[in-house]
């Protein structure tokens, strides 16, 4: 691994992404949404003034679950399927394809990170004004989970790009992947539970969580932000299924790491065997 190459490629990728409209558009959209959610959540405080930080962060999470995967998929796909001639020139340099992949990955992540942090930073100012001590851990947790989600979908976009090669096709597949993970997957599982006996259905639901990073992040974040009891008996059964709170967290973090690393490795293996 040539870290100089990775760093150089990453920095250029960040520079390109900051200069093309994507990062700024994302930062603006994200910032406006985050700001308005936290403003209406924290300042106006809901209809009767009971709106606490937990609910605001849950609304934020919901928005994050839609937007972050989409942005990561689109920005990632655009970057990983760069124009052929530019790609040829880069791949002809004395760097390995793995280094190029990781460099681009980190570069795009840095630009998503930047945009996300601008949005969360601005909203954080509003939230901090009223969040009290409970915001100290919860808000950074939300930001961390968002970034983890970005990593995962960036990794998926690398795999999609490696499979599809062509920009338009890859973008189409990326959009489908977004739709699938955000909506379709859950509908399938919910529908599926009615086809099986109770016991099978339960393991299907719990097992299915690991097949969808969006679900994992949603469940983990809601448990952290709103308290682990938010899913009622289902949540208690899930924690037992995973062997308690600490082991659940460990299992979750391992599963999420696998979701970051596995598509990236798969993409690298594909790329290694491909003609540019």
């Amino acid at each position: 691994m040539d870290t100089n190459a990775i760093r150089t490629i990453g920095r250029q990728e960040l520079m390109i992404n900051v200069r093309n409209r994507w990062t700024l558009v994302f930062a603006a959209v994200f910032g406006v949404l985050v700001l308005s959610i936290s403003y209406f959540g924290m300042i106006t405080g809901g209809s009767l003034g009971f709106q606490g930080f937990a609910r605001t962060s849950a609304s934020l999470l919901n928005m994050v679950l839609y937007i972050v995967p989409l942005v990561a998929l689109v920005m990632g796909t655009l970057s990983f399927t760069s124009e052929t001639s530019a790609g040829e020139l880069l791949f002809a340099q004395p760097v390995t394809r793995g280094e190029i992949l990781i460099g681009k990955f980190l570069g795009v992540f840095a630009s998503i990170f930047t945009a996300t942090v601008i949005g969360f930073g601005l909203a954080g100012v509003i939230i901090a004004a009223k969040a009290g001590p409970e915001g100290s851990l919860r808000y950074p947790t939300l930001v961390a989970y968002s970034l983890l989600l970005a990593l995962i979908f960036l990794s998926l976009s690398a795999l999609i790009s490696a499979i599809c090669r062509r920009k338009t096709k890859a973008l189409g597949v990326a959009l489908f992947a977004w739709f699938f993970f955000v909506l379709f997957y859950d509908l399938l599982v919910i529908g599926g539970t009615f086809l099986f006996k109770e016991r099978t259905a339960n393991s299907l639901i719990f097992g299915s969580l690991f097949g969808n990073p969006v679900d994992m992040v949603r469940v983990a974040s809601l448990m952290t932000l709103n308290g682990k009891e938010i899913f009622g008996a289902g949540g208690a059964a899930l924690l037992r299924f995973l062997g308690g709170e600490t082991s659940s967290l460990i299992v979750l973090l391992i599963a999420l790491s696998v979701w970051v690393i596995a598509p990236l490795i798969a993409a690298q293996q594909l790329l290694k065997r491909q003609d540019i």
């Binding site: 520079m15 900051v18 930062a27 939230i127 901090a128 009223k130 001590p133």
Partner: peptide
């Protein structure tokens, strides 16, 4: 019984700093 609505100075400062750093990154790369 209402949620504690106090300012969280640590969160405030780190938010401002994070946003500022990110803004700086955008500016230098622009």
């Amino acid at each position: 019984a209402r949620p504690v609505q106090r300012m969280n100075a640590g969160l405030m400062i780190s938010s401002i700093m994070l946003a500022a750093v990110a803004g700086f990154v955008v500016w230098t790369n622009q």
